[in-house]
């Protein structure tokens, strides 16, 4: 019943915060982002370790095989975190290579998904399944 309430609407989502996001929530976020545009696997790389010792700081690199200027934005989602959104990153006119490196938190073993929005309106996706030994967000 609780799960149905959570799925019922965003108001319910805010009222009762789940311990973890679900793949369903992430799929909904991606659907909102992509709309009806074509979404293909590959031609981009989400670089994350498959075995993560410490979920408090995990180095992640997202890169797209494309010319500078061909990528509009990058989006990162973590299915097993309490809040599934990790970052939204949009490139401006002075951006160089479509490549970004940062450090993120991972609450548990899960799938991390990266989406690249291209200037031509298409989308690319890459994901990594990983194991987290020491979880973030506990204390």
């Amino acid at each position: 019943m609780k799960r149905r309430l959570l799925l019922a609407g965003s108001a319910a989502l805010l009222a009762i915060r789940p311990a973890q996001a679900t793949p369903v929530q992430v799929a909904a976020l991606i659907r909102d982002l992509v709309g009806g545009a074509p979404l293909t696997q590959g031609n981009m790389k989400l670089d994350l370790p498959v075995m993560v010792e410490n979920g408090n700081t995990v180095s992640v690199t997202v890169s797209v095989d494309a010319q500078p200027g061909a990528v509009h934005s990058l989006h990162l989602f973590a299915e097993g975190n309490p809040l599934p959104e990790v970052m939204h990153f949009s490139f401006g006119p002075r951006a160089g290579l479509p490549r970004v490196q940062t450090r993120i938190r991972l609450a548990t073993s899960q799938t991390v998904i990266a989406i690249a929005q291209m200037r031509d309106g298409t989308f690319r996706q890459d994901s990594v399944d990983l194991l987290v030994t020491l979880a973030a967000c506990i204390d």
Partner: peptide, 25 residues
Amino acid sequence: EEEVFRMNLFPAIAANPFLVFSATA
């Protein structure tokens, strides 16, 4: 005056945010 990037961060970004990005001049 020209934008290189714009980033929205969420709580899943680790403490002491670290970023490597590319720009052209």
